[in-house]
């Protein structure tokens, strides 16, 4: 018993040393990693909604989380929205962010995370020739929800050769999220216009007190 206790104690000392030194390394790298993630996120947001200058998180009580993009600091009328969606691909959960225009069409999409098969599924982010954007992503620009179908399902999004599951996962996940968003926002659209105009009035009246 005493022997086992001693062994346990020795093991604990080793793990403690390991834990403390890792804590130190973590302190050094953490801000760097967070900075990288923030830059990546902002780059993706700019990519799909270049018109917007300011992004504000949605604060309404609805079930969806999205960002609202405004073209100026005044934050009066949105130029678009940004949503995040996940699709079950061939070997990974594919994370896509996409922008939605004010008439509920897709603005642009950007696949931010995927671990699909190299050479097949990963071609969803492949860039051809001098094009600035992957050809697969570009097909989604300004589509309405009902047009978000790959060719195998009767739509006209050209799917990636040999990677129908990946293509379908992306198209379907975007479509689903967009429908959901349309339902949530469409239902309350009348109200929201009313609210924004009220807010604008209040800003005009009490302009000096506005924090930003």
């Amino acid at each position: 018993m005493k022997f086992i206790l001693k062994l346990g104690l020795i093991l604990m000392v080793y793990t403690l040393i390991a834990g403390v030194s890792l804590g130190f390394i973590n302190k050094v790298t953490k801000p760097k990693i967070e900075e990288q993630q923030r830059m990546e996120r902002e780059r993706a947001q700019k990519e799909v909604l270049p018109e917007a200058l300011v992004f504000v998180e949605d604060t309404t009580s609805g079930g969806l989380d999205y960002l609202i993009g405004y073209d100026s600091e005044g934050r009066t009328s949105p130029v678009g929205y940004i949503l995040t969606t996940f699709g079950d691909g061939f070997s990974s959960k594919i994370k896509t962010i996409f922008s939605v225009t004010t008439d509920f069409k897709v603005g642009a999409i950007e696949i931010v995370y995927q671990e699909e098969t190299p050479g097949l599924g990963t071609r969803c982010v492949e860039i051809k020739g001098d094009s600035p954007e992957p050809w697969f992503e570009m097909q989604f620009d300004s589509r309405s929800p009902q047009d978000l179908l790959v060719d195998k399902d009767g739509g006209n999004i050209t799917s990636i050769t040999g990677a129908t599951i990946t293509s379908r996962a992306i198209a379907n996940s975007v479509q689903e999220k967009l429908e959901e968003f349309k339902n949530e926002l469409g239902a309350s659209k009348e109200d929201s216009i009313l609210i924004t105009s009220e807010v604008r009035d209040s800003i005009e009246i009490g302009g000096d007190n506005e924090p930003d």
Binding site: T29, K32, I33
Partner: peptide, 11 residues
């Protein structure tokens, strides 16, 4: 391994 992982994620 954790050191490598953190360093790689950061740089």
């Amino acid at each position: 391994v954790t050191i490598v992982k953190l360093a790689m994620a950061a740089y």
